[in-house]
Amino acid sequence: MMQLLTHVIRVFVAVTFIFSGFVKLVDPLGSAYKFEEYFGADVLNLEFLSPFALQFSILLILAEIMLGVMLLVGFKSKITVWSLFFISLLFLFLTWYSAYYDKVTDCGCFGDAITLTPWETFYKNVILIVLILVLLLRMYDIQPILSDSFAQRVSLISLLVFVGIVIYVLRYLPIIDFRAYAVGKSIPEGMLIPEDAEKPVYEDTWVYNVNGEDRTFTTEEKPWSIEGATFVDRKTRTLVEGYVPPIHDFTMERDGEDITDLLMAKEKLMLIVAYNLSMTSDKGMIKIKELADRAMESGYSVYCFSASTQEDYEKLKSEYKLDFDLLFCDETTLKTIIRSNPGVVTLNKGVITGKWSWRRAEKITFK
């Protein structure tokens, strides 16, 4: 009976790690952005690690998915299970920290495929730790499938395939897009809030100085009505998040004017998305220039979509003889829209019809 239970746990843990690793493997930049948040000054205060967020992300993703495969086929079971235990402890700490201190509200443990709250993620990791502890106690029941050599070959082939996927998606775009900006999605529809949507609930805590002493009050206590009380501070805590639309930080600003509605009505719109213009490559901008010229000849309205300043864009515009204007948007939103910098997005009345890395610019055709 215990042997059967061990096998069930083994398969469950293995599949969980393989799934979790795969949804991040197809979009490693998404995980890198999450690690940048964790390394930030207001979270773990490890900003010196931020430049290595992508490398750290890739290593952790490969470790996660490979440990899942190795557990499933029974390769190096002792090393595998102990490694799973320690990597789960790391995840447990990060998710506890996120939940307890309300930092990095979406840890990205399942990439963009499944969104969990910090506490849901923490409890998920607690369950995994318990199951892995069972596997540690029943290590002798974890035997290779068919043979040691078969388990070794499957593990090696899997590693080569996974590394190949990482190289491909970093060079081009994620092979599966779980985000709200995937091809076929409507941006205007993604911004809508249903009339019957759950409303957010907040709790205010007030700090007033009364008779020379700072005291904390609830809203119901109406501290502002206390004679002689002086306002010091107010803190707001979210009790219920409420409904958050899939797309909630999308704006298209030109010279300080929001022209989102105007552009979302266009049938032929091309956005050259570059969250940071200083990080674009010369080769990339040369290709983008050629693509933009072809697009405008085909009747497309073309804009650069960036979080950089107008001054930065004017330098780039002059250098590459660009014939289109700049639109401003939040950097995080731009990174979510497309993982390439620059990347190309085409839209028809707000519906995304195509997404490409700049490396594929010459392959884009227009009807």
Score class of each variant (00 low, 15 high):
V8G: 12
V11Y: 09
A14E: 05
G21K: 02
L25E: 11
S31C: 05
K34P: 01
Y38S: 01
G40I: 00
D42E: 03
V43W: 00
L44R: 06
N45A: 13
L46E: 13
F48C: 03
L49A: 09
S50A: 15
F52Y: 15
Q55M: 14
Q55C: 09
L62V: 02
A63Q: 01
E64R: 04
G68T: 02
V69S: 14
F75W: 15
F75D: 05
K76P: 10
S83L: 15
I87H: 07
S88W: 11
F93G: 05
T95S: 10
Y97W: 12
S98Q: 11
S98K: 09
Y100D: 13
Y100C: 05
T105P: 04
D106L: 03
G108A: 06
F110W: 10
P118M: 11
P118I: 00
W119K: 11
Y123E: 10
N125H: 14
I127E: 08
I127A: 15
L131T: 00
L131W: 00
I132M: 11
L133G: 09
L136Y: 07
M139K: 13
I142Q: 13
I145S: 04
A151Y: 10
R153L: 06
V154R: 12
S155W: 13
S155D: 10
F162N: 11
G164H: 15
G164M: 15
V166Q: 10
V169Y: 14
L170S: 09
R171F: 14
P174E: 07
I175S: 08
D177F: 08
F178V: 01
A180L: 13
V183G: 12
E189M: 07
I193D: 12
A197F: 05
V201L: 13
Y202N: 08
Y202I: 11
E203H: 04
E203P: 00
V207T: 09
Y208M: 06
N209Y: 06
G212Q: 13
T216C: 14
T218Y: 11
E220Q: 12
S225P: 02
E227N: 01
E227L: 03
E227D: 06
T230V: 08
V232A: 10
D233V: 02
T236A: 03
L239W: 02
V240Q: 08
D249C: 03
E253P: 08
D255W: 03
E257F: 14
I259R: 03
L262R: 12
A265N: 15
K266T: 02
L269Y: 03
M270C: 07
M270H: 07
I272T: 00
V273Q: 01
N276P: 03
L277K: 06
K283A: 00
G284R: 01
K287G: 04
K287F: 03
E290T: 04
L291I: 00
E297W: 01
G299Q: 05
Y300T: 02
V302M: 12
C304A: 11
F305T: 01
E314A: 12
E319P: 05
Y320C: 09
L322A: 02
L326H: 06
L327F: 06
C329F: 08
T333A: 08
I338P: 01
N341D: 11
N341A: 05
T346H: 03
V351D: 08
V351E: 09
G354V: 03
G354H: 12
W356D: 01
R359W: 11
I364A: 01
T365Y: 14
F366G: 00
